[in-house]
Design a protein around this nucleic acid. Structure first.
Lengths: 259, 259
DNA sequence: GCCGTCTCTTGATCTGGATCAACGTATATC
DNA sequence: GATATACGTTGATCCAGATCAAGAGACGGC
């Protein structure tokens, strides 16, 4: 049996227009399509017709959470999907004895909370201070009828997520500890690049325990792998949460099974 | 490093209306909505408006494959999605050194082949003789504009698949060998029940190597787990491919971590 | 500045499942 | 019915990564 660390949590804000709204983007940031966030082309609604965007912005709701806040729990009524505006969110499932599997990390521009049969299959928790755009699922369904582009966008997002899952299942089912850590770092780096952030140095908002519970290892093994890579000159670790990738190609070779 | 068994394959039929069509359902079986298959309520197109169904049946194409036939390979142009009419399909990713991860099994009524950016992220191979309904993705996209119900149905299918992935990631990341095998058997049983087949006895169309490569174990460990369960009176194994679940609740307890 | 708490790292030891090695068992061929 | 070829089971041994244990930083509270 594998150990897995579970941490505490609390608090369940409501979307009522008065609690926790982040309000409009700060002046310094570029305005998003609907004027409610600064995601630019990363926004779910980017590129939609003006009419569609205004419909979305009428049902949308912007919220802020603090680290360890729970956005929703496994088994809760699945009422909304979320788009991350800022910060980082983790999503996990628990076993009765406390073993935990983090099934995903979500950053600026990522969406999560798609669910079937009305209940969430996992718990979502803020890692850092987080701003999210919340879209009520039911009203989204109604909008989808008049604006099929919304549903198509959802299909695209879900397809991308499915592809990620295939990769992650390969990682968990068949990769060694070194390969898992290398893959994890490269995946974060690649996602940073795609969202317009520098792919290195990488900042890890999650702790070693979160990484371990995501890639099916223990804290100790994750830590050791990082140290190996550092000693081998593949990484610099100015601090535990800062990773500079020195030799991306070598790390890629390891991640793909040639290390 | 984990061993994983790769088997051979070959053959790539084309959808040209003359090759491999299964033709209409046999007289004994209930006709499906579009008249091209006998999936009944399991069919993707079940419940659609007559107009939508006839549009679908014009772009649809029915195909048959033999065991070990490859439907498509990782990296191929992703031109179509597939719905299984009969038989079983496995979907997998390979690592350069031959390690293999089976990311899913698909049975009667299941759909697979959703892909992004035009290339499949995995290889699909027939386990048994297989009949599939093939829907060209591009034309599906065109249809979706006039019939949003198609896209909604796709969202439903993908949401269900995402939920399955969350469960499978938990299995691979945090469950013991016993728990994995118990979970696997119960999942197959549950899927059989949902599609209207008896949940027990269960017939396993895939071999032990396929099971192992799906749940991140070796053939030997899968075999041992089956033997343990048999000795403990949880299962009957009249033959390697036949599993009667004697004590579903006890097996469930094991699967959930209480065994 | 000092203390408590938490996270990360490093070392020593243990173990679940992988690996290695036969040996059954079933279907196919001739 | 003998032989070949998979596939599945069982046993013995090994090892990658878990577990156990102890420091080393980092950081907030007062």
């Amino acid at each position: 049996m594998t150990r897995s660390t579970v941490t505490a949590l609390r608090h369940d804000p409501v979307c009522d227009g008065t609690t926790g709204g982040v309000g409009p983007a700060t002046p310094a940031e570029s305005q998003g399509p609907c004027g409610q966030c600064d995601l630019g082309t990363l926004a779910f609604c980017d590129g939609f017709a003006a009419r569609t965007i205004s419909s979305l912005s009428r049902v949308q709701c912007t919220l802020r959470f603090e680290p360890h806040d729970t956005l929703f729990r496994e088994g809760d009524q699945g009422l909304a999907v979320y788009s991350v505006v800022s910060g980082a969110v983790k999503v996990y499932k628990l076993m009765p004895d406390g073993r935990r599997q983090i099934t995903g990390f979500f950053f600026r521009g990522d969406m999560f909370g798609f669910c079937l049969d009305g209940t969430y299959a996992y718990t979502a928790e803020a890692i850092t201070p987080v701003g999210v755009c919340r879209l009520p699922m039911q009203r989204l369904g109604e909008l989808a009828e008049t604006a099929p582009e919304i549903q198509y966008r959802i299909v695209l997002r879900m397809t991308a997520k499915l592809a990620q899952f295939h990769d992650h299942v390969l990682l968990l089912g068949r990769k060694t500890a070194r390969e898992r850590v290398a893959t994890f770092l490269l995946t974060l780096s690649d996602r940073a690049r795609r969202r317009g952030d520098p792919p290195s140095p990488l900042s890890l908002p999650m702790g070693r325990a979160d990484i371990a519970d995501h890639i099916g290892l223990t804290v100790e093994t994750v830590s050791r792998a990082m140290t190996w890579f550092k000693r081998e000159g593949l990484l610099d670790l100015p601090s535990p949460s800062q990773v500079a990738i020195r030799q991306p190609e070598a790390l890629r070779a390891i991640a793909d099974g040639a290390g």
